[in-house]
């Protein structure tokens, strides 16, 4: 049941729980309890909204930053990752296999704000060896949802 609940609410966290229970063929109380348990266990960490900021009048710039760092003895990458994720403007921090170590995504009001963060705060950290900043120009698909195009039902309206 957990997997099915998670799959459903990952796509639609606002789903009516009574309705979800019907669709899964479960009792509503069981679904509610299961979700509460998963919240307590930290499996469900939050409920977010997918926003296409492009369509609003609010200016936002997002960037992905590749960071190469020197891992510290006894702590690996955890300490430096923590230093970085504590900045509120940072959205996510991932440890990455391959050509660099950490992938940091962040949002700012303007290009300048983002570049200031990188040059003033990120690059100056002791263990950071280098950074490469990629600004996101357009989001086609985010969290499994296509933002660029609207779904059109092209099927014949009636078929046997």
């Amino acid at each position: 049941m957990r997997e099915k609940i998670l799959k459903a609410i990952e796509k639609n966290s606002r789903i009516d729980l009574k309705e979800l229970a019907i669709m899964l063929g479960e009792e509503e109380i069981n679904v509610v309890n299961e979700i509460a348990a998963m919240e307590a266990e930290g499996i469900i960490c939050g409920y977010h909204t997918l926003i296409d900021w492009e369509k609003t009048s609010i200016e936002k710039v997002s960037a992905l930053i590749e960071v190469r760092v020197t891992p510290q003895r006894g702590q690996g990458f955890d300490t430096i990752a923590e230093r970085i994720y504590k900045y509120p403007e940072v959205n996510s921090v991932y440890l990455i296999s391959g050509g660099y170590d950490l992938l940091v995504s962040l949002e700012g009001k303007s290009l300048k704000e983002v570049s200031n963060f990188v040059s003033d705060k990120l690059s100056t950290l002791d263990t950071v060896l280098s950074t490469a900043t990629h600004f996101i120009l357009k989001k086609y698909k985010d969290h499994g949802t296509v933002l660029a195009k609207k779904y059109v039902d092209e099927r014949l309206k009636m078929t046997p």
Partner: peptide, 18 residues
């Protein structure tokens, strides 16, 4: 029915078999 539905631009359908 297909002919009638096809003429109705704003009709929604629960009639497909695919």
């Amino acid at each position: 029915f297909f002919d009638i539905v096809s003429e109705m631009e704003d009709a929604i359908s629960l009639g497909v078999g695919e």
